[in-house]
């Protein structure tokens, strides 16, 4: 395609770039602050002045402005099983995302393509539940998890968040937009219900499912309060946000360290998004409202 004339192009960049800088500023600020030496977190200078160096030097003659120490503290503290916490977080977030996608895809298909009494009323009811403030679920869900005896189990950490109504909505919208003729054709070929779902619907829904997977993963990766209360302190399943909060106990508000902790919440998500962005945007757009 023929690119825009240079003048129009420049005009657009001139508007976009300042906005882009603003949009990316928090990310950049977080990383820079996390790299600063203690005490420099709230100093609005980025280049070492007299008597300061960039990083620690062996002579110790000058004060360093930047350090990797804030990350080292988290990653290599002998008492802090970073990798165990991170693995747990990944497993919880991944498990929750997988189960969410499975539930939403099957139900999305049911609500989109099947005729059964009460279908629309049930769907509307579920959508209305989306308007309920999320906080309200916490206490009763905890009571249920207790009743089930699920404390310190993967089930408690994963299952309560998997009936994701937004996800159901996304997949149902998408599957509804698939032509019925595909299903009819498969039926004519004698395909079983399960295989219609598996061979026809699922392959066509991959972008939406990946999107839902990522959104769920991202949400659960940083879930703090729920994972804190369903695990006792001796649990083997402690997740990273809970683990990182142990550090907070000890430093009142130390911005450099706090931002290093924040990097663990944001950077994996950013990387994941950048790797899967093509699906992501395609999926979101495929599932969004059109009618």
């Amino acid at each position: 395609m023929r690119p825009l004339p240079p003048k129009a192009m420049l005009a657009r960049y001139a508007v976009l770039l300042p906005v882009l800088v603003l949009v990316q500023l928090p990310l950049v600020w977080m990383i820079v602050t996390a790299l600063k030496a203690p005490g420099y977190g709230l100093v609005l200078r980025f280049i070492p002045g007299p008597g300061e160096t960039w990083f620690e030097d062996a002579t110790g003659a000058a004060k360093n402005m930047y350090t990797l120490g804030n990350f080292r503290n988290v990653l290599f503290d002998a008492d802090f099983p970073f990798w165990r916490f991170a693995t747990n977080s990944a497993l919880v977030a991944g498990g929750c995302a997988l189960m969410t996608v499975a539930l939403c895809a099957t139900a999305g298909y049911g609500f989109a393509k099947k005729q059964f009494p009460g279908r629309d009323r049930l769907f509307a009811l579920l959508i209305a539940a989306m308007l309920v403030p999320g906080l309200i679920y916490m206490v009763p869900q905890y009571a249920i998890v207790l009743k089930f005896g699920w404390i310190n189990t993967w089930a408690a950490m994963i299952v309560p968040h998997t009936a994701n109504i937004f996800g159901l909505f996304l997949l149902r919208q998408h599957i509804r937009s698939l032509p019925d003729s595909l299903i009819e054709a498969a039926k004519v070929d004698g395909a079983h219900e399960i295989s219609i779902f598996g061979r026809v619907i699922l392959p066509l829904s991959v972008p939406v499912m990946v999107t839902l997977f990522l959104l769920t993963f991202v949400g659960q990766w940083s879930n703090f309060l729920w994972q804190l209360i369903v695990n006792t302190p001796d649990s083997k399943l402690i997740t990273l946000p809970v683990g990182l909060s142990y550090f907070q106990g000890q430093y009142s508000v130390q911005w450099e360290r706090m931002m290093a902790g924040a990097c663990f919440s944001i950077i994996p998500v950013a990387v994941l998004f950048l790797v899967a962005q093509r699906f992501f945007i395609a999926g979101l757009t495929a599932g969004s409202v059109k009618e």
Binding site: A107, P140, P160, A163
Partner: peptide, 17 residues
Amino acid sequence: FIAPFVVVAAVFLVFPI
């Protein structure tokens, strides 16, 4: 097809409400 979702939603969303 809707059963798994509805069961989980009934237990963890509808009941809590």
